[in-house]
Amino acid sequence: MRLSALLLGPVLLVNLLTFLAPVLNLASLSFNEARPGGGIGPGPTLATWADLLADPYYLELVTSSVGVAAMVTVGTLLAGYPLALFIHRASARWRNLLMVACISPLLVSAVVRTYGWMVILGDNGIVAAALRWLGMAKPPRMVFNLTGVAIALVEILMPTMILCLLAGFGRLNVALEEAAASLGAPPWRVLLRVVLPLSMPGVLLGCLLAFVLTVSSFITPKLLGGGRVILLATEIYDQAIVTLNWPVAAALSVLSLAVFGAALLLYGRILRIVEA
C-alpha cells in the first residue's frame, strides 16, 4: 500500500499542480471583479457573475456557441457514419489501411488542417477555381463566415467521430443484417431498424466528443471566421489575452464547463434510454 502511494505520488502531484489547483483557482477568480488595465479587485463578490448573467450578449454567445456546436456535430455524424460503416464492412486487409487513412488526420495539427481549408475554400482557392472553370461567374463565399468554419470543423472532427463509431460497431453482426435482408427487408430498413439502433452507443459518444470539441474550438474560427464567428472559446481568448479581463474570462470558462456538464448529463440520459 505504501509502495502504491509512492508510485502514484508523482503523477498526482503533477495533476494537482497543473490541473486541480489551477482549475479551482480559475473558478474562484470568477468571484472577483476586474479592474481596468488587467487588475483584479478583492473578492469574493458576485459582481462579475451578476454583470455577465444580466447581459444578453453573453447569453446569446452561449446559445449561438451551442447552436454552432450542435450543427457541426450533426454534420460530423452524417459525414462520418457512412465512412465508418464502409470501413467496418471492409475485408480485414483493407480495414486496417482504411482506418489508418481515416484516423491519421487526427494526428496532424489543427493549424495545418485549418490552413489546408484556407487553401481549398479561399477566394483564390481550389473550390472557387473549379466553380469558375465550370462557368460560375461568382462562386459563393466560403471563407470569412460561419460556412467555412463549419466545413473545416466537420472535417477536423471526423476522425474522432469515426473512431467512436467503429468502437460502437463492435456489437454489429453481419449475420444479423443478412438475416434481416433475407427476410425481405429493404437495405434502408435494415439500416434504420438493425444497424442504427445497435450502433447508438458509438453514435452518442461520437456526438458528445464532437460537441465538446466544437464548443472549445478556437483555432479554426479565428483563422477562417473573418473576425465574424465569435464563440465561447474565442471570446475567452480575447478576454484573457487581449483585454486581460480575467474574472470575465474565468466566468465564461465556468459557463463552458457548465455547457460541457449539461452535454454529459444529456449523453448519460440518452444512453440509458438506448441501452434499455
Binding site: 497543473t18 483557482n25 480559475l26 470558462s253 464547463l257 460541457f260
Partner: peptide, 13 residues
C-alpha cells in the same frame, strides 16, 4: 475538459 479552460487556468497560475 475543454482545452481553452485548462489553458486559461494555467495562464493565471
Amino acid at each position: 475538459l475543454p482545452t481553452i479552460v485548462l489553458a486559461l487556468a494555467l495562464l493565471i497560475i
